[in-house]
Amino acid sequence: MLVSLADVARAIVSGVLIGSVYSLIAMGLALIWGVMDIINFAQGDFMMLGAFTTYWLLELAGLDPLLSLPVSFALVFALGVLTQRVVIERILQAPMVSQISATFAVLMMIRYGAEAAFGPFTRRVVTSYTGTVLRFSWTTIPLTRAIAFSISLVVAALLYLFLTRTYVGLAIRATSQNRMAASLMGIDIRRMYMLAFGIGVGVSAVGGTLLSTFFPIYPEMGGFFCLIAFIIVVFGGFGSIFGAYISGIIIGVTEAVSALFISPTLKDVVAFLLFIIIILVKPRGLFGARM
């Protein structure tokens, strides 16, 4: 099989586009981990809720995915705050096994709750522009993916501005770097936890909304995306939110290029291999810095 330069360029573009959606899910995971030292195994399932919010708002109210995006964020943010209050709050000081079990329990409730409510079927979000493509001399890009990429960039930029330019953002970062000192400066740690968890899963839901515009959705879809997000976060350096964004794109490109050169069925294997190599060579991840 001959692979032309244009094929590689196309693979890279498509990898960047899908990677930018992975990045959103991973950034949320990194935020939660960085602030609370909790690995949220339900991250992919909050993403799925974002996707289904978009689906139902389109089906029932005719709302365009771009308009349902803020709704999807807000709903899942609220659910995240509730999860923090009801579940996570109680296990913050618990042994790691209990923490894993607790977020895993949240995963089961969301995933199989959704399956019970919506059935196990695969659905598609279809809009007037679903089939539209942007034509370039050497490639075509589906409009939905281009939109997803642009919004992902905007969301990442907003998160960056929030964490570096606002008082609450500074307080969230302070909490992640030194809880005791933060509380002594007058920061309500519990409030920061609620915000971090809410924003962390909310950003993931935005990823779900964007994904749903070009990817079939089903209640169990969160599993793969949580795994990939986890790899991206470890790859980028735990707790580094912007490292997670870049790593998401690297993983997306790795998958797409290996699908081209090796086999589409093995694309994830290559991503996982790359992950293992990075962990062996650079155990703190590519970007060691904290948020």
Binding site: L170, A171, R173, Q177, N178, M180, A182, R290, M291
Partner: peptide, 19 residues
């Protein structure tokens, strides 16, 4: 000291003015 090591000096001071 208990500083916020990955924040700048100015950010450390700003956080202290949180109340």
């Amino acid at each position: 000291r208990q500083l916020f090591p990955w924040m700048t000096v100015l950010e450390n001071l700003k956080v202290a003015a949180y109340t």
